[in-house]
Design a protein around this nucleic acid. Sequence first.
DNA 1: CGTGACTGTTAATGAGCGTTAACCATTTCC
DNA 2: GGAAATGGTTAACGCTCATTAACAGTCACG
Lengths: 201, 201
Amino acid sequence: MATRTDAPTRREQILKEAARLFADRGFHGVGVDEIGAAVGISGPGLYRHFPGKDAMLAELLVGISGRLLTGAKRRLAEADGETSSQILDSLIEGHIDFALDDRPLITLHDRELDRLRDSDRKLVRQLQRQYVELWVQVVREVYPGLAEPTARSAVHSVFGLLNSTPHLGRAGTLPGRGTTAALLHRMARGAFAAAEAESRA
Amino acid sequence: MATRTDAPTRREQILKEAARLFADRGFHGVGVDEIGAAVGISGPGLYRHFPGKDAMLAELLVGISGRLLTGAKRRLAEADGETSSQILDSLIEGHIDFALDDRPLITLHDRELDRLRDSDRKLVRQLQRQYVELWVQVVREVYPGLAEPTARSAVHSVFGLLNSTPHLGRAGTLPGRGTTAALLHRMARGAFAAAEAESRA
DNA sequence: CGTGACTGTTAATGAGCGTTAACCATTTCC
DNA sequence: GGAAATGGTTAACGCTCATTAACAGTCACG
């Protein structure tokens, strides 16, 4: 489990650049030649590493959903003795890290899902669903006033809030990563708390 | 200003169906034949109403941003005597109405902007910017603790929250429009309030 | 040495698709 | 009543683009 210091493999370079390009101009908006050029090889050379353009998108999207889910599961597992509230904070923190560090992937995540083969799309959706349900459980422990459907809607909405980072001005204009992360975190908690205020209206 | 009861014109049918299709499968993912079929005419017949496929997208996106902005301006103008807090509630309500009633447009709004001609994209961005600034002003009146950059980030994030409706399960599974709107409204206010808590940390 | 396995290259193929051309029915209106 | 205007049609063009073919350099290793 050592953190890898190796040079990135060609496959990884391709995936990274493809993610950036897909996020910028959409799956159909990017040609294979362009992806190839981004890693210094040309067009069809990509086919030595992937069976096709679709496969790159599939691997990206499955990878995203998978990493989000396993990350959340890990946080949950490592949390013996912590309060539900602390666990929720940990989930939020993990999601924010992801949103801030992998903006292109976040963008792809809910933009290009429909371009996948049926089987891949099903897989991604299943991973997403598990991730959501995991959040819903924790959220309902922290905010018991939330009925399950309400909690699910609230979770989706908070994802929308956290995933808004791509719209927050390109890199330079942001008030600094830590500040932004803290702001998003507070807002997420505030949104959940306000959601719970329902039953008492 | 009578609410129109007329049958929708062909142009409007086309725009509506195009919006739905673009939102579902992306601008590049939809063919003109398909758009034509959706309104009962076939492929090239569209060119009697629009100079090209791009023009449909442009009109849709400019229309969205324009309606959001003018709606917000109207609410502001009609609000003499109201408190800033009431005005903010009105802005939120307007945005939620839009998000719930025109889901496809919301989706397009931040998904296909890059496919526009430079001039159109500039126009749309300008309208968006005005809309954001208008919110920022009102938000800062209600939550004076918010510095301007923070307020702007918060506004973007709340847009992310409100625009999450497309992800809230297709139509049937929603707990009812009024309930959903109320939930989103509460969460938005809660998020802003929590954002303000910053300077006092 | 030499024979695969790898990783590239360029050229060709073939499908999809936006757009234009050429043509036609219907309505409007002097 | 006839000429525009209007809103369709189908067929053809041309371009983009993913994918495949055919070929070649490099390195590991028996």
